[in-house]
């Protein structure tokens, strides 16, 4: 069992690198969203609000008074907390900068996928809890997309796990670092495409969902969170940007693992931090640039995209058994 090497042992350096990852994600995720908006604005010929605008928005929202809309219950209030907490947990667990994270016991691909789904489910329940037509509509659409996206993620992760014999993320990343050929194998390429489509769906990006839309017919994520305001909305926005950052980070950890520190030395970790920030930034920039040329899919065309990516993921698993 190669996975056993990355078990639940907790070291000071591991905890430090987990804390570093969480701090990096919290601080960097709104900047990532700002960067993507800025790139998009420039490519569309607008001046743009600047990379720091999401942080300024969050600051403004945090200063407002919290509200309790009539007829909403405890689930409505806790859902943003759950979403942020799951994103934090995932940020701490995935080996972004070092394969020696402090949360070995949670650094499992299936657990990571399930945690992100838990956040989605919590927000969908909050949307239903408002009892408005929009809340229900957003929740229904979001759960349809999740129900089809989660299997794809599980399949793709499974394909990457069979070779290593473990779903332990540090073990998978470590194996690809030791054997670079693994990353460009057919299994990995198929899984990379499948996961890319799902990252778009889970993070609510074009062509699955338009994060800047306020048109009723096309809203998914925005429709669920219409009733949130002030600090609650700040949490929802922060969680959404963190999920985007974490998903891009997961993709880069699986398919562009180079530079991730395998030791706990300060120079290695510092270098890995810079490289990781760069990787996620470039991925975000590419995504933003791509979105300029893309229109949102009709809601009932989205399952076709997801079914396609599911098929790729099945092929990846089959390839991992055959090749």
């Amino acid at each position: 069992m190669s996975g056993g090497a990355f078990g639940t042992e907790v070291t000071a350096a591991g905890v430090a690198s987990s804390v570093l990852q969480v701090a990096l994600t919290v601080a960097g995720a709104p900047l990532l969203v700002g960067l993507m908006r800025q790139i998009r604005a420039r490519m569309e010929g607008r001046a743009g609000a600047g990379v720091g605008q999401p942080w300024r928005d969050l600051r403004k929202l945090m200063r407002k008074k919290p509200l309790a809309p009539d007829g909403t219950g405890p689930l409505f209030r806790t859902a943003p907390l759950v979403q942020v907490a799951t994103a934090l947990m995932v940020a701490a667990a995935i080996p972004f900068v070092s394969v020696r994270t402090g949360l070995g016991g949670a650094a499992d691909l299936i657990a990571v996928v399930a945690l992100l789904t838990l956040g989605t489910a919590a927000l969908a329940l909050a949307g239903l809890d408002t009892g408005t037509a929009f809340g229900g509509m957003g929740a229904s659409r979001e759960m349809t997309i999740t129900a089809l996206a989660e299997p794809t993620v599980l399949m793709a992760t499974f394909a990457l796990s069979t070779r290593v014999g473990s779903t332990n993320l540090p073990a998978i990343v470590d194996a690809s670092l030791k054997d670079a050929g693994r990353v460009i194998s057919p299994v990995s390429v198929l899984a990379a495409f499948a996961l890319a489509a799902v990252v778009l769906a889970e993070a609510g990006r074009l062509p699955v969902d338009n994060p800047s839309t306020h048109l009723e017919l096309t809203m998914v994520h925005e429709a669920m969170v219409l009733e949130y305001s002030g600090p609650d909305l700040a949490l929802v926005e922060l969680a959404a940007s963190m999920r985007l950052a974490v998903l891009l980070g997961l993709w880069s950890a699986l398919f562009l693992p180079w530079g991730t520190a395998t030791s706990t030395g300060v120079p290695a970790v510092a270098g890995a931090t810079v490289l990781f920030t760069l990787k996620v930034g470039v991925l975000g920039a590419v995504l933003a640039a791509g979105e300029v040329f893309m229109a949102k899919l009709r809601l009932f065309r989205v399952p076709e995209l997801l079914a396609g990516s599911f098929l790729l993921a099945v092929l990846a698993v089959a390839a991992s058994f055959f090749l």
């Binding site: 309790a68 809309p69 007829g71 219409l226 009733e227």
Partner: peptide, 11 residues
Amino acid sequence: PRRRAVPLWDC
């Protein structure tokens, strides 16, 4: 800690 009760916005 205090939340102010308000009617649902519902657009």
